[in-house]
Design a protein around this nucleic acid. Structure first.
Lengths: 254, 254
DNA sequence: GAGTGGTCTAGACCACGAC
DNA sequence: TCGTGGTCTAGACCACTCG
């Protein structure tokens, strides 16, 4: 399948330099004209080779500036359900706790709170018929003013009607606090999460909202929260860019 | 950031047709010459637009054949640690059990069994110094003769020296059976897995070994197995293409 | 202003698949 | 054989950054 095309040879040469450490992250690559001269070809062919490396996520380019080796992302956010209870004990939703633990500044934009017909994947997990009206809270999580995660929280209407979750306001301590509040209207205890994760390239909308650079995939997760009776109380539908997230799961074998 | 470049307009038009369902998976897209005429431009510009869609994983092309909308992959393999004990109770390693449960035919190629200096990420997890000699079993997992997963199993030498794990042969029932065999030489009980997962685009070697199509990301996982004393007994370093895997994790909150 | 990358044109030849 | 996509050349103009 791999050919000997010139533009691939150019890509291979530069990739080797990057992987060997000869070209360090953040440093500029040779200019297109330099490469064209070096490989006795045209800029067009050089650009095709560079395009491969951009699609692999190894290079970044901007008009007017030198093409350079993609800098390592500052810090990766570790996404995990394992520390849920410990953070919440301090009155923090999971995301905020995770970010603060890394000494960074979390922020959350509540984009909208709506009644919508449940999409198939959500309906399935909330155990309602497809198209049943459910509540969705659409949020964008930020860290140090960089977008980190799109997160839509879906809730059964009969569970959250009339509660703070239905209002278009941020919820201090997070929605789980409202669901579990022993003095509140819902009073469920969340005892289990089931998280489904898949990988793909981002859609143009996601590239825009999350500022995903070329060559970076995203994870799409559906995290369902169950109460002690086994009923689903929440489905979180999230999209997370692969360059700013890592995932860790702990599986205890009984 | 998004420009109005003609090749982007072409990509946008075709993407819209794909997402709306007007162009169904497996059906051919318009030919490059047709698009060039339709948009009053050259094939070169059309190809640039199509390249975007290939990088997004929406189109596939082959020399001589029409470019077509990427067909949906046959079945996704669900990767999870949750059913570990239940499958092994039937004497099957986790992968084989998972595949058989879907009515497909698993296969495993043992590529090599070597003593190697532990790379940093492995050493860290096996709790040995970087560069310490460890055993690695490199395998390629197949399903119905399609490559599904590269999986390198790392083991501390003092744990597995002289056991079947050190031999270049497949192990009936998997390495865990040897580690846990109450009549065997190791006799540890695996009680916990910690799985780290990250996303990226595949390397050329991975594209080759796993036949990863353009526009498909991979997951790289490091799954560490711990025994009842808390010692790490195995690290599995795997690469899984995103078009044939989904992941599910169950998190119980104490 | 010089140099960079981004876009586009108008050709050409090749390798391969389908008919 | 003909149409397809894959590769490459040799130009051109533009938008942008940097010194």
């Amino acid at each position: 399948m791999p050919s000997n095309a010139l533009h691939r040879q150019i890509a291979d040469a530069i990739r080797a330099d990057i992987l060997s450490g000869a070209l360090r992250p953040g440093t500029p690559a040779p200019s297109e004209n330099e490469l064209a001269a070096q490989f006795s070809t045209t800029r067009n062919t050089v650009r095709k080779g560079l395009a491969l490396l951009k699609a692999e996520g190894l290079l970044v380019s901007e008009q007017g500036k030198r093409t350079s080796v993609r800098p390592r992302p500052k810090v990766r956010l570790l996404s995990t359900g394992a520390n849920h209870r410990s953070h919440r004990a301090r009155g923090l939703p999971a995301f905020n706790g995770e970010v603060l633990a890394q000494g960074r500044r979390p922020d959350q934009r509540l984009l909208e709170v709506l009644h919508v017909p449940a999409p198939q994947e959500i309906a399935e997990r909330l155990e309602v018929d497809e198209g049943t009206t459910v509540l969705v809270r659409r949020r964008l999580f930020m860290v140090d003013d960089e977008p980190m995660q799109l997160c839509d929280g879906y809730y059964p209407l009969d569970l959250v009607a009339g509660t703070a979750i239905e209002e278009k306001r941020k919820i201090r301590g997070g929605a789980h606090l409202v669901i579990e509040d022993p003095d509140g209207p819902i009073r469920r205890r969340i005892v289990r999460f089931v998280e489904d994760l898949e990988l793909r390239m981002p859609t143009p909308a996601e590239i825009n909202d999350l500022r995903v650079p070329p060559g970076v995939p995203v994870a799409r997760t559906l995290r369902t929260a169950y109460d002690s009776s086994g009923a689903a109380v929440e489905v979180l539908d999230s999209v997370l860019p692969g360059d700013r997230h890592a995932f860790r799961y702990v599986i205890d074998v009984p």
